[in-house]
Every structure is written in structure tokens, then in C-alpha cells.
Amino acid sequence: MADRTFALRSGRAVGVSTFGDPDAERLVVFCHAAPGSSVFDPDPDASAERHAHIVAIDRPGYGASEPWPLGSWPSITQAADDIAEYIRSVVVAETVIGVTRPRTVGVVGWSAGGRVALAVAARHPHLVDRVAIVGTPAPNEAVPWIDPKLQALSDELGAMAPGEAMSRLSAMLQPQADAVAAASEPGGVPLEMLGVGPVDQQALSGRGVHDRLGRMLKEAFRQGTGGVAGDILSYTARPWGFELGDVAAKTLIIAGQADAVAGYAHAAWYKKALPDSRMETMPGVGHLAIVPAWGRVLSHVAPAQLTR
């Protein structure tokens, strides 16, 4: 589970996991997939080699983070603001004890986490200087990718009271939680719910990858299905709540060439929408591109010499 919990000003607790170099000056925040949790390190070797202190935070309802408050709509922007509050608190606390870090950080998002990463950059531009998103779907109205029946359901849920929408969607997602719970070992957890397909077998065959993903999903559903239900509602049933044009950070967009969830068309849409961005594709890789791309991602958000 997460290394620790952090109490937000609201009183809500969030789970925090750290990896990489704890003594590094450069701070990098990793926003997990949906379903997902903070315990997933895409490539521990690459994380150890790059001089960066990497932090991941469970979004509400996942892992060690408390659920969304009753009666409130899950939102991408609130998840982003939680991250920004944590980052600012760390900088302040470390300054008091004489630790000096750069005042800006790098933020990474995989799949649904990419939207949160971009929201952090858009809403807190003085806090974030570099962003990387990997396999992040574009809005459905821009690049259709959600089954029309599911989008119609999301529209229906969006017209309900938040508690009712969460309850209904959570019940529908219960088979995912049951499938994860049925696996006795992390390596036996089914990964289809992450968009992992046959094309990802090479990435999945890497040392410990399946186990790490399995542990991530075990943590994702530790409290039930509220975490993933909240994520889905935040980006399919409600407005995103921020403008991509407000992202001033230098942004790297990566897509697996064979990603059936969020491939080239999605990355190209983000390339046009983000003011300072670069797009790269990874041949022969699907939605699990975050694993082989992790070293490249870290070289962008935590370069040896940070330049603009």
C-alpha cells in the first residue's frame, strides 16, 4: 500500500507513494491510470537511474485515499488541486529544515492520469514546468473512442445527483473488483481492464511488470469500486474543468503505435491543443507504453540540466 498518508486542509487524507532517489532535488509527480493506485513504478531500474524524487498520490477512493465527499461530484480539477496542495506543503516543510528543491516540478500522467497531470499544469502554472502524458485519451467529442451506449449512460449519470450516479456506476463496475479479488497473487490479476492487449506482451514480459500492475490493481480496489467510478464520471459525465491552452509547461505526448485505446489520433489531437508540446510514438507498443517509455519520460520531466 502507499508509503504514507497526507492530510489535506479539508481534512481528507490521501495516500502517497515515493520511489526513485529520495535525496534528488528534482521532484516528479506520477498520476496513475484508471483503475490504478500510487504503488505502481513503471520501471524501477529507470527510476533508480534518473536523479529524481518521484511521488505518486492515490486519487480519492483508491488505495489509501479517502473517497470523494458525499454529495460532491468527482472532478479532474479537484484531483489536480490535491496534488498541488501536497507539492506546496512538501516544499514549505523541506525549506524549514534546510532542504532546497527547485520551486517547479515535473508531472507525468498515464492514461486517465494524463488529464490530471495536464490539469495540475493548467491550474498551477507557476508550480509545473514540464509535463508528460502517455496513452491519454482525448475528449470523446474530439476523438470518438467510447462506445455510444456507454457514452449515453454517462450522459444519463451526469444528470443524476452525484451520490446516485456514484452508487449506480460503482455497482456496474463490481465485476472488475471481483476479478481482481479472485486472483490469489498479483501476477494472476487480469489486466484487460487497463486496456492491455496482445501487442503489450513484450512490455508485460519485463521483470516484475505483471506483478507490479497486479499490486496496483489490488490497491485500486481495496476500498471497492468508488475510485474508478469517480474517475469515469469526472471525464465522461462532467466537463473537464480546465483549458488545455492554459498549459504553459513544455509537454511530451507519447502514444503506443498499436494502442487501441488512445493511439496516434489522440496524441495528435493533444499536439494541436497544447501550446508547447512534442509528440512521439512508440512502434509495436499498445496501451502499456508507459513501461518501455518510462526512461524517456523521466529524461523529459527530470533532465540532467533543466532548460526551457
Rank of each mutant, 00 (worst) to 15 (best):
A93E: 15
R59Q: 06
D129A: 13
P125C: 10
D147N: 15
R103K: 13
E94I: 09
G61I: 02
A64S: 14
A64G: 12
E85F: 11
P144D: 06
T136F: 11
A80V: 14
W145R: 11
L118M: 12
V120G: 09
A121D: 14
E66S: 09
A52E: 06
V90W: 04
P144K: 10
A119L: 13
D58G: 02
W68R: 07
A122I: 09
P67S: 09
V131F: 12
H53Y: 13
S89P: 03
G63T: 00
S89L: 02
L127R: 08
G109K: 03
G109Q: 06
P69I: 06
V99F: 07
R101Q: 09
W110H: 15
I146L: 15
G113Q: 00
A84M: 11
A84K: 13
P144N: 11
R101Y: 04
Y62A: 13
S111H: 12
V92Y: 14
I133L: 12
V131L: 06
H124C: 08
P74K: 02
G98K: 09
W145E: 02
G109H: 02
A119R: 11
P139G: 02
P139R: 04
P74I: 03
R88M: 06
E141R: 12
S72T: 15
A132L: 07
E94V: 04
G135N: 07
V108K: 00
Q78I: 06
R115D: 00
G109Y: 09
E49R: 15
R59C: 03
V143S: 12
P144G: 14
R130Y: 11
A56C: 07
P139Q: 08
L118Q: 10
S65P: 09
G63Y: 00
V143I: 14
T95C: 12
P137R: 03
V96D: 14
E49Y: 10
E141C: 00
L118T: 09
